[in-house]
């Protein structure tokens, strides 16, 4: 996994609540057996009309906005456990997703793929969306070490929480498999004494 420390980028505002993983990557694209290429179809049915033409109303198709930070509405990533959603978002080029609330499974999947979920308050999210929409050129800085997200010149800044273990994984580029495989002896000892 790629190491994550600080990151600066412009951001794309996706002001929709309850974005489910079926929207992020529709089921018909889940037939692939590797992890690559899902970015082409991220938000497929919002980005494109059924005839394949781009939907100009969708924020990804608005040339005002660009960047590797996705700022989304409350309860992002609910629904299906498909990790393809995290693969699609990272494959499209995002490094960070900001929301006021993340669904559990999506959050875990994101962290396992080097995609940082930054959870902020409702009011900060609102201020951030307003700022990006009125000034699309705004550059945000995400500092994982200090657990802050800010648009410094503007006095917009917030602290975010992250599990300390997951934080160290992100900073060092480790993943859970490394940790678990290093503990096989402990696991085997547990199996040996397990009764039920």
């Amino acid at each position: 996994m790629e190491k994550f420390i600080t990151f600066q980028s412009r951001a794309i505002p996706l002001q929709i609540e309850n974005v489910d993983t079926d929207q992020i990557i529709p089921a018909r694209f889940l037939k692939a057996t590797d992890r690559k290429g899902f970015g082409d179809n991220v938000f497929r049915d919002w980005r494109y009309h059924k005839d394949g033409s781009a939907n100009s109303d969708f924020v990804f198709n608005n040339s005002k906005y660009t960047g590797s930070i996705l700022v989304a509405g409350d309860n992002f990533g609910c629904g299906s456990s498909r990790e393809h959603a995290a693969w699609a978002i990272t494959d499209f080029g995002f490094k960070v997703v900001v929301s006021s609330f993340f669904a559990d499974i999506f959050k875990g999947n994101a962290l396992n793929n080097g995609l940082l979920p930054v959870q902020v308050s409702d009011s900060f999210l609102k201020a951030l969306l307003t700022q990006i929409q009125s000034h699309p050129e705004t550059v945000l800085e995400v500092n994982l070490e200090n657990q802050t997200i800010s648009a410094n010149d503007l006095g917009l800044s917030a602290h975010f929480d992250i599990d300390p273990y997951k934080k160290s994984c992100m900073i060092n580029g480790y993943d859970d498999i490394d940790y678990l495989v290093n503990n096989i002896k402990l696991i085997e000892a547990f199996e040996a004494q397990k009764i039920n």
Partner: peptide
């Protein structure tokens, strides 16, 4: 409970998951 594919790999490798108790 449902898990992502990275966790499927973790269970394959170790029959365990790293989790914070809900």
């Amino acid at each position: 409970f449902g898990i992502g594919t990275s966790q499927v790999a973790q269970v394959f490798a170790s029959q365990c998951l790293l989790l914070t108790k809900p």
